[in-house]
Simulated scan of single mutants.
Amino acid sequence: MSRHRLPYAAGLGPSERDPLPVAGPPERRVLRRETVLLLGVSLGASAIWAVLSIIDKLTRQTPLRQQTTAMNQSVTPDRPWLDLAYQLTGAALQVVPVVLALFLLAHVHRPSPAVGPARFIGFDRTEPFRDLARGAGLAALIGVPGLGFYVLATAVGINTNVSAANLTDVWWSAPVLTLAAIANALIEEVVMVGYLFTRWRQISWSWPVVIGTSALIRGTYHLYQGFGGFLGNVVMGLVLGYVYARTRRVMPLVICHALLDIVAFVGYSVLKARGISL
């Protein structure tokens, strides 16, 4: 293992106090493969499917703006008890890559000998009120302009109409949509930011490259919504990546993302039940 240590957030934040061990050339190859494999069983695979999805949409005769992308759909609408099992299983399995990422950070080229991986990436409860305030503030900062951008992107024809919640009318729809939102937030922020930022810094990528690459991947796995979803999520990735580089806390990002998705999923479900469409 290389003894060279790199300030984790050089020039970007207060994390100089906890330098990051930089991997040597042989270890860098291992870490690159590790990140590719983890992406391959999580968000990287989603990006590939999203690319195929947008190709499918673009090669249809129906214009993109007239197509609908349905999310959070019922699997067995005629059997609510089985549908609930499907929804809960899907949310639980989505968290597995999060646990795997933390496991790898704990056992393969550990980023800090002093603290555990969750503490190192700021995925802990040491600053609950500050994390909540930051997360809520980020959600407001991103959510309102994001909704306006979605409406504009759909109007100009570069995005599909996104149907965010399509569960049957059952009592457990709101709790399940909330769980789905939290699962999305966990995998996207812990894996896409906390884990990848740590690994890419360990192999000596610069902060602009780290933040930009993460944002591009984030945008790519939202391409199934259209190019508006891609661009909006690239911008979101840049903002959240910069915030993480400044604070080295992923918890506010998880809170922000969860709030955005809860409002989108549950809010859409409520509006749909009342016959209101966006």
Rank of each mutant, 00 (worst) to 15 (best):
S46C: 10
V41P: 01
L52N: 14
L20T: 02
L39R: 03
G40D: 04
I54E: 07
S15V: 05
R28W: 00
G11H: 01
L37M: 11
S74W: 00
E27D: 14
R65V: 06
H4N: 04
I48L: 15
Q73T: 15
T69H: 08
R29Y: 00
G13R: 01
T62E: 15
Q67H: 08
V41L: 13
G11W: 01
P25D: 05
G24I: 03
V41K: 00
L58G: 07
Q73D: 11
T59N: 12
S46G: 09
A10K: 02
V75R: 12
W49N: 15
I54W: 07
L39Q: 08
P19F: 03
T69F: 14
Q67K: 10
R17V: 13
S42A: 14
V75N: 09
A23S: 09
V51R: 01
P19Y: 05
D78I: 02
W81K: 14
V36N: 03
T68I: 14
L38D: 10
I55Y: 06
R33Y: 09
R17Q: 09
P80T: 12
V30P: 02
P26R: 10
K57A: 15
S15P: 00
I54Y: 08
G11C: 01
T76L: 15
W49M: 14
T59Y: 09
A9F: 00
T35G: 01
P21L: 02
A50F: 08
W49H: 11
A47H: 07
A45Q: 12
S46A: 15
V41A: 04
I48F: 15
K57R: 15
P26Q: 06
R79T: 15
P19I: 02
W81G: 12
S42E: 04
L6I: 14
P26D: 09
H4K: 04
V41G: 08
P25G: 01
D56K: 12
S15G: 12
P7S: 01
V51G: 07
E27S: 10
A70R: 13
L43K: 00
E34P: 02
E27R: 11
L31I: 13
V30W: 04
S74V: 05
A9Q: 06
Q73K: 13
M71F: 06
Q61H: 10
L31N: 06
T59H: 14
E16Q: 08
L39K: 03
S53H: 11
E34T: 15
E27K: 07
